[in-house]
């Protein structure tokens, strides 16, 4: 691909737009990792559930936006018993125990999706058709709207953390669950709320991304790697850090793909984070060790 400033600008803009979705997917993963210390392998599967619900809503009821309410609600409702029965007993134990439990959930969700939804991939038509011409390509309007929505959700979550009592409690627990408990913070309730919010946001991310991807029972697997990478590179518990890392990854992929064959560009975009992890072991914005 010949280099032009137009091409570079397009790749940067698209990198930022996609970063909003990756940031949204990573949000719940980050919260669960940061607060409960769990590497939630099932997070991508919940995202897949959101996309599959969007597919059913569009095909059965003809309403995409309804899915944006129904999918998070279902994910939130199901996450309560899962938290109580599966996740709660693994908190505070070796990282591997949580990993085994959530991998189990991943297997269960993936296989159930295959049994119910089937192996054939599906497509969700974007609820907003058309595109805006800029930088030499017609940019799908839905991408811009969905990215704006994702950004709004990320800002809303940030405001929730900064300006509500629950947000304060969450930040307290993230710093030290013991101190938080000693200060009267209902740590148990904070954990539950984080799990519910995380599941709801993952499902919502699945709904929003569904019209831009192929809906399949295994779609959550490929997103898990990039999501984990931005969470850790951004700094555990740092919302802005994950988004910044996602933007960095998106831009790097786009810019590198101008100069390198795409596969090498993709590898370069993630390999870029290795030196960053060496220089800042706690992530770009991570302070805690």
């Amino acid at each position: 691909m010949a280099f032009t400033w137009q091409v570079l600008a397009f790749q940067i803009v698209n990198g930022v737009v996609w970063a909003m979705f990756l940031g949204l997917i990573a949000l719940g993963l980050n919260a669960i990792f940061g607060l409960l210390g769990l590497l939630n392998m099932a997070h991508g599967a919940v995202y897949a559930i959101g996309a599959v619900i969007a597919w059913y809503m569009v095909h059965q009821l003809g309403s995409f936006w309804m899915a944006a309410i129904v999918a998070p609600a279902i994910a939130a409702a199901v996450s309560i018993p899962i938290y109580k029965l599966v996740l709660r007993p693994t908190i505070g134990k070796d990282m591997m125990i949580g990993l085994v439990a959530t991998s189990g959930l991943l297997f269960i969700i993936n296989d159930t999706l295959l049994a119910l939804y089937g192996g054939s991939p599906g497509l969700v038509q974007p609820p907003i058709a058309g595109g805006v011409r800029f930088l030499g390509i017609i940019y799908p309007t839905y991408r811009l709207v969905a990215a704006a929505l994702a950004a709004a959700i990320l800002i809303a979550f940030w405001l929730f953390l900064k300006s509500t009592a629950m947000g304060l409690w969450i930040r307290c627990v993230a710093q030290s669950p013991t101190l938080a408990m000693a200060s009267g913070v209902p740590v148990e309730r904070v954990y539950l709320i984080i799990v519910v919010l995380s599941a709801a946001l993952a499902a919502l991310a699945g709904v929003l991304v569904a019209p831009m991807t192929t809906v399949s029972h295994q779609m959550g697997l490929s997103i898990l790697g990039p999501a984990f990478i931005v969470v850790v590179v951004g700094g555990l518990g740092s919302l802005g850090g994950a988004v910044a890392a996602a933007i960095l990854m998106g831009i790097a992929r786009g810019v590198l793909s101008i100069y390198l064959p795409p596969t090498y560009a993709e590898v370069g975009a993630i390999a870029l984070f290795l030196p960053l992890l060496l220089l800042r072991p706690n992530g770009i914005f991570g302070a805690r060790s």
Binding site: Q11, N14, G15, W18, L22, R143, M212, T213, S222, I223, G225, P226, G250, R253, G254, S257, P262, T263, A265, E266, V267
Partner: peptide, 9 residues
């Protein structure tokens, strides 16, 4: 590339 989440680039 294998598993590229966004095809647009």
């Amino acid at each position: 590339p294998v598993d590229a989440p966004d095809l647009l680039p």
